[in-house]
Design a binder for these strands. Sequence first.
DNA 1: CTGTTAGCGCCTTCAT
DNA 2: ATGAAGGCGCTAACAG
Lengths: 373, 373
Amino acid sequence: MKGSSITIVDIAKKLNISKSTVSRALTNNPNVNPETRQKVLALADQLAYQPNMLSIGLRTNKTKTIGIVVPELISSFYPTVMAGAQEAAAQRGFSVLTASCNENYATEVANSKVMLANCVDGVLVSITKETINYDHWMTFYRRGIPIVFFDRVCGEMMVPKVVVSDYESSFNAVAHLVASGRKRIAHLTGPAQMLIMQKRLNGYRAALNKHGLTYDESLVIDTDLNVTNVKMQVKYLLEQKQPVDAIFAVNDAIAMEAVQVLKKMNKRVPEDIAVVGFGDHYGSGFADPALTTIAVPNREMGKTAMSLLLSLMDKEPASWKPITRILDGELVVRQSTIKPEPMVSYVSSYPGVFQMNSLHNREFSDDKKLKAI
Amino acid sequence: MKGSSITIVDIAKKLNISKSTVSRALTNNPNVNPETRQKVLALADQLAYQPNMLSIGLRTNKTKTIGIVVPELISSFYPTVMAGAQEAAAQRGFSVLTASCNENYATEVANSKVMLANCVDGVLVSITKETINYDHWMTFYRRGIPIVFFDRVCGEMMVPKVVVSDYESSFNAVAHLVASGRKRIAHLTGPAQMLIMQKRLNGYRAALNKHGLTYDESLVIDTDLNVTNVKMQVKYLLEQKQPVDAIFAVNDAIAMEAVQVLKKMNKRVPEDIAVVGFGDHYGSGFADPALTTIAVPNREMGKTAMSLLLSLMDKEPASWKPITRILDGELVVRQSTIKPEPMVSYVSSYPGVFQMNSLHNREFSDDKKLKAI
DNA sequence: CTGTTAGCGCCTTCAT
DNA sequence: ATGAAGGCGCTAACAG
């Protein structure tokens, strides 16, 4: 005895008018008598009429839903981006269909098909660490379904993207280590095919270069973004004939793990070895020692990406420009690189309260400048 | 020139057979010639046919999507639950439509309508801190759309729920504080109308009672789940004629904030004041001091809730039983309550690696036992 | 085993 | 300003 939902026909019958008029009244069509509209609206409200998005989607080819595909849901990064994106979508009446890939390429492909099958009006995508083929996303492009990559973007596709200033941020992080007197700076990186890793690695290299330190290949180690590898890798770094005095990790999870390992090995952080992360994940701020890292405006990233995506939908696919929006990361210096000062002012480390200052975006009209990095 | 997608009609035309046969072949209908099926499947594959979920949904009244409505996306808790739920859904071919409410009742109501409009086959819900009216969720119940609450459940509705052992876990947390010699134990709680807060408060009271400590109303303070209130509230607690020597916070975010405030006020944790949280959020493990807390199997909770929900859909609404699944929380003793021991074994504090042991579920056939608590 | 038909709920010409 | 009719892509009777 499931109380089925109210339809336009129901309203039409009760009011003894045609369903097309009801439809018009409900869709702000100007060609309808104000009185009629009032009656329809009143009844619709009273009956708690909910338009059936399925049939609307089927009819209009617009579902008012946006797909969001993320590589994982373990770190706080993607959920926060999603929250920002969702908020921006809701403001314009869009719903959000989400899917996580568990860093698995096959799952990503499957998820892309789900998005297609559900006729999303657009997709926000951040790829898995395994992804090197983009055919499944090209399909969207070909069909005129707008797609915006964020954070872990795809280098090959000329579509809009939202990223953090990976290169500059890395550069700043490493420059900070150099400024604090470090000479042997290791880099725990991720899969080499990922653009994001390349940019961060390049930033690392450039900073070393700029400050007269030689780039040593043996100090750059691929963690495959897997924390379980870190223990062994940190040990390896310490066993070098010229042991490292600093570690720049490609994200906070890796950095935190490195700190744990170092502490376990009775190394002092930052006195013996400084550690810098990337991302300012939840928890990094009140770790022991608090982690120096790059704060990324993740919620902002979600909003920006969604706004960009929604703005595309108003225009012709032909006019879509592969804009890359770059959000500035900000170096947050904490105790994992600098010994605590005597006086530290009180700052809430809870993300809901944390204030990010001076986050301005820049914009490039195409990918070339980015690739030049 | 958007390359529109392939439909059943397209396949039927190319194969010169009827669309119903194509449909049958695609839906594993037994009444179809194996050869025909092969041809259809082959062509569908070649053409990268994607069934249109909108029309299927419209026709069958089943969309294969589950709505998940969460109160917030700031802490790591809900994203992790969602990840678990999504995984369980994907295994059975279900997609997930998500919506966050930013702890706002009106948004929750709006989100419930979105779910209705999108014809989800069921919903997983955790309510906001403001929610005291459940009419919008009753609608689902009335329409025969299965609904399962998790974590922040609704006491009034007789529907399936998945929760942690709030009462017992609180009891254990407070008992642990007592065992470590604390006499004046404060409780930072949340909005009193929330069932989850009531249960945790009851657990706190019971533990005090059991160990001969008197319940002092002035030591129970409502934070409204807002970390910005904590500073003032902790100060208040310290200014009591008989100052507190321990704080049991209703979640980790509040607890972490309390620790920060205490440190700022030059109180030693745990020597002067012990702090216990609830939830074992990401980051609590490597905080300074590492936070003693209740580890909740959040990913497991998502999986359990989704499995429960999907299992309902196979049965008649009339036979749905308001089962409440209780997942055990586990007290994780860390440095915020006990001074660090000389030897600490190495444990990865990264959630992807963290091993949760002995998490067994219990099950009640109705809500009464729970309410009795 | 296959084809025909009808219709899910809605929007959108085309009439009036 | 309103009504009638057609169809989005698909499935589920009903015939054969």
